[in-house]
Computed example of a mutant assay.
Amino acid sequence: MSFFQNTCKPKGIGGKIMVNMMNSGHSSMAEWGFTHIEIAENNICLDIGCGGGANVKKLLEKSPHGKVTGIDYSEISVEKSQKINKAEISNKRCKILQGNVMELPFGNETFDVITAFETIYFWPDISGAFKQIYRVLKNTGTFMICNESNGENPKEEKWTKMIQGMKIYNSEQVKKSLEDAGFTDIKIHKNKKGWLCVVCKKIKM
């Protein structure tokens, strides 16, 4: 397995190095993403594909009277996330679970805010995944996707050849799949670095 395959599902020593790199390397993008959503101090939040747990930690800071769950299908990522959020796990404000976005182990309408940073590339079926997210998100809840690649730069396709199972989506593809899952009020944000942030709502009449 190539080292970069660890971006998909970190394993072994290479995986441990990768999750550390993710925590530092993606921090600027994550901060940019967070500027596009509002998080209340008592929100119940979920970070899907939580990787090294840095964004779980940020969500805990932004919702000091709320709770945050992180989920990832990599054992290495779960271990790292649990380590850096150990204090809030002890305080019963945080849980880190190993699981799959295609079968989220949560009840209907559990979360106020759901985030997905640098992870939808690796989901086998984003339409099916978005339906799962719609199910576990509360009515009027917010879902945010944040990617370093917006699908508009042909040079980035080299990563899909290097990393098995990776697919880069453009904003229109993401928007269509979100609409098909039932999401509304979809807002698309891009910047000069080629980053993409998509924020949407679940609003049932």
Results as ranks from 00 to 15, higher is better:
I84A: 01
E103H: 12
V78T: 01
K57T: 12
F34H: 04
E109V: 04
G49Y: 15
P105N: 13
L97C: 05
A87H: 12
C50H: 02
R93N: 07
K86H: 10
F130Y: 09
I126T: 00
S63E: 06
E118T: 07
Q132W: 03
Y73A: 00
M21R: 13
T35S: 15
I37H: 03
G33A: 07
M29N: 06
T119G: 13
D125L: 11
G33P: 02
Q98S: 04
T110F: 07
Y73Q: 03
R135S: 05
N42F: 12
S63R: 11
G128Q: 06
L104M: 10
I89E: 04
I89W: 08
S81I: 06
V136W: 08
E118Q: 09
I84Y: 03
D112W: 12
P105H: 13
I48M: 10
L59C: 08
I71V: 07
E103I: 07
S77G: 01
K83T: 10
V56A: 01
W123P: 01
S81P: 00
T115D: 06
N139Y: 05
I120T: 04
S127E: 15
E118A: 09
W32P: 02
T35M: 14
K67E: 14
D125Y: 11
E38P: 00
G141H: 07
P64F: 02
A54N: 10
S24K: 15
N85W: 09
N91H: 14
I89V: 03
N91Q: 15
W123V: 12
K131E: 14
S127M: 09
C45T: 02
K83W: 10
G128W: 08
C50V: 08
I114W: 12
I84F: 06
T69E: 07
N100G: 00
R93M: 07
K86A: 11
G107P: 02
V68D: 04
G107N: 13
S24H: 14
S27E: 09
V113L: 12
V56W: 10
A129N: 02
E103D: 09
G25H: 05
I133G: 02
C50S: 13
D112C: 05
I44Y: 11
K95E: 15
T115N: 03
L59N: 03
F117C: 03
T142G: 02
F111I: 03
L59D: 02
L104W: 12
T115F: 11
V101I: 14
K67N: 14
G53Q: 09
L97R: 09
S28I: 10
P105Y: 14
K67R: 15
M22H: 06
G25M: 13
E109R: 09
L137D: 02
I48A: 04
G107M: 10
A116K: 12
G53P: 05
A129R: 06
A40T: 10
I39T: 05
E61S: 12
C94N: 04
N85D: 08
H26R: 08
K83V: 05
N42W: 06
H26L: 12
A116M: 15
S28A: 13
G66I: 02
